[in-house]
Nucleic acid binder design. Structure first.
Lengths: 348, 348
DNA sequence: TTACACAGTTCAATCGTTTGAACCAATGAG
DNA sequence: CTCATTGGTTCAAACGATTGAACTGTGTAA
């Protein structure tokens, strides 16, 4: 039941003071090479573990960074986690992790806890319905001068940094692709209301079609899940005059749609075109592989962590909004409009 | 540039001492209702944020729990993260997060950092190649009396708690199912060497077949990824006398196999049977939906966090190994052996 | 009247580390 | 021989919260 060694333990062990040990372990030039070595040796021998609680307390800052995600069940979101962990590790920072479960209340709770744990900076994918006021409140109440960077989702008029995907561009790329294939009857299967991504993608969809003189066959909203894609696709596919293409809010939704197609014996890319968004790993291995828009989670994660570290280092310039360009990835789930005998007068 | 309020700030604000404030905020009965209210009011007004660094330092313990995962790119692994986050949140504990990237060196580094941050307990999916000696070393050097619970992967003879899936049972369920469908030519497509899961599943596969008087058509090893499944399936499918069923180490591998089938015009469940393992979310929505073994990540996560909390509360009983029974989930990727005109004398 | 219990508050030490200032030899310069 | 310099080490005061012990003042019992 021996407790952990501290600086004092080491100090007593080799007959110097704690100050000496403290300085020595941090390679302060004031301490002689010889003493430094002796200290290091003793520390190793005693299995000394640095106590950051104490150090942070004294120095009044901390090296930990907090990451609060809206929803973990979406593999796309965990891609951010992955990239950010790597960047922060390189920068020598530990990561506090929180999951807001798309709940405003939980998000506030998590932010509070992270603040109590002395997070020196925070990355966040805001949950649905997060407003600028809410963010300001969180900053004032809990974060004080701890910088905050939003990723993936924007929040209107929020005076905070954000790094987001250019969703408008992504949707335009998809529409160009579908139109080049001859599609004119296109439906939208949308994701969670109350997020900038859902709104921006849908708006770009409607506007993009309008420019081509088209109107959406239909627009449906629902959660960003395979279950929703599956359920919502049914009525679309079974309609007397179904769309020739379904543009989905995300890959998850698109995978659900593909499942619905499968059960009806419809082959995506042949009988109907289906597109995803995000290009998460499984998209490439779907059957058929999914045409999608690759959101550069690595670049977004990289830029966000760089921005956060800069803020933590004292960068006081006004909040920035950085957008990252996505890439269209064409795979087999999209194809030319099937020349089924369509009813005459059906065009437009 | 105002800094955060402390107990002292509040104390001065309402004319009491820090002790009073400290006790009041924690609802100590020694403090009168009236003072307690005044303190709470002032704390709210000043946006006071509790400083756990200081509290932990003084009390000599901490409420944070560390989770160190082997690999984040596998959605199956993040399911654990999800469930554990929920359990620890309920227990009022914050989560430190680390990612070992299947690297022993990184794993040690992460454990060290987590120890420095005062983790009071740790959950870990050990990386490939982790030995009992390595675990003991980590415990002695960094964790001291901080309890450790392994999940998902076992480590032979390690004197630590673990909660793992019963992989043997899972494989037996799969084999029974396949044999009931008439399969006798069955191949194994295996995952990362150096893990208990890879070893146990493969061993159970070989033994299971042996009991039925069969031998594996082939056995291949490789990383737990769709890319591997895709690449490794090619030669199998193109062989002159291909297996009628491919049993995959994990869903990810199976999805890769399905992709390989798709490119060859083979339909899983009709032309060949494919099975996964883990039953992660996407398995149900694959085309065709994947027959798999559901690993109860929720139950494992629940048991592991309960066990860890018990250890943190002082449970000193000897290390336990808890196994959780998986469920066979039959979907469309498996079907009866196709009665193609097989060469005579080809049986067995 | 003295003593005592008791509720409510304060005192003061403590956790492990950091850090500016102080200290102390030993050396070199004047 | 003194005085300043310097390299190496120690002093002591923080950081913010916790907590057992000590201290008030009131009310009650003896």
């Amino acid at each position: 039941m021996k407790s952990r060694p501290t600086l004092k333990t080491i100090a007593e062990h080799i007959g110097v003071t704690v100050s000496t040990v403290s300085l020595a372990l941090r390679d302060d030039p004031r301490i002689s090479r010889a003493t430094r070595d002796r200290v290091q040796e003793a520390a190793d021998a005693l299995d000394y573990v640095y106590n950051r609680h104490a150090a942070n307390l004294r120095r009044g800052d901390s090296a930990t960074v907090a990451v609060c995600l809206n929803e973990l069940s979406n593999p796309f979101v965990t891609e951010f986690l992955q990239h950010m962990e790597a960047h922060f590790r390189e920068a020598g920072r530990m990561m506090l992790f929180g999951h807001a479960h798309e709940s405003l209340a939980l998000q506030a709770e998590v932010v509070k806890q992270m603040a109590e744990h002395g997070a020196a900076g925070m990355i966040m994918v805001p949950v649905m319905g997060t407003t600028a006021e809410e963010l300001v409140r969180l900053q004032r109440s809990y974060l004080r001068h701890c910088p905050l960077v939003l990723i993936s989702r924007d929040v209107d008029d929020a005076p905070v940094d954000r790094v987001i995907n250019d969703d408008g561009l992504g949707v335009r790329l998809l529409l160009e692709h579908l139109q080049a294939l001859g599609h004119r009857r296109i439906a939208w299967l949308g994701g969670g209301q109350g997020t900038s991504t859902a709104r921006d993608r849908e708006r770009s969809f409607v506007e993009g079609l309008a420019i081509a003189g088209l109107t959406p066959v239909s627009i449906h909203h629902g959660p960003t899940s395979m279950a929703f894609g599956d359920a919502a696709a049914g009525p679309l596919l079974d309609a007397p005059n179904p769309p020739t293409a379904i543009v989905c809010f995300s890959d998850l939704v698109a995978l659900g749609v593909q499942a619905a197609c499968y059960r009806r014996g419809l082959v995506p890319g042949v009988d109907i075109s289906v597109t995803g968004f995000d290009d998460m790993d499984v998209a490439a291995y779907a059957t058929p592989p999914l045409t999608s828009v690759r959101v550069r989670t690595d670049v977004i994660g990289q830029q966000a962590s760089a921005l956060l570290l800069a803020r933590m280092a004292g960068d006081q310039t006004p909040p920035r909004c950085q957008t990252v360009d996505p890439l269209l990835v064409v795979r087999a789930s999209t194809g030319p409009v099937p020349d089924t005998p369509s009813l005459p007068g059906d065009a437009l």
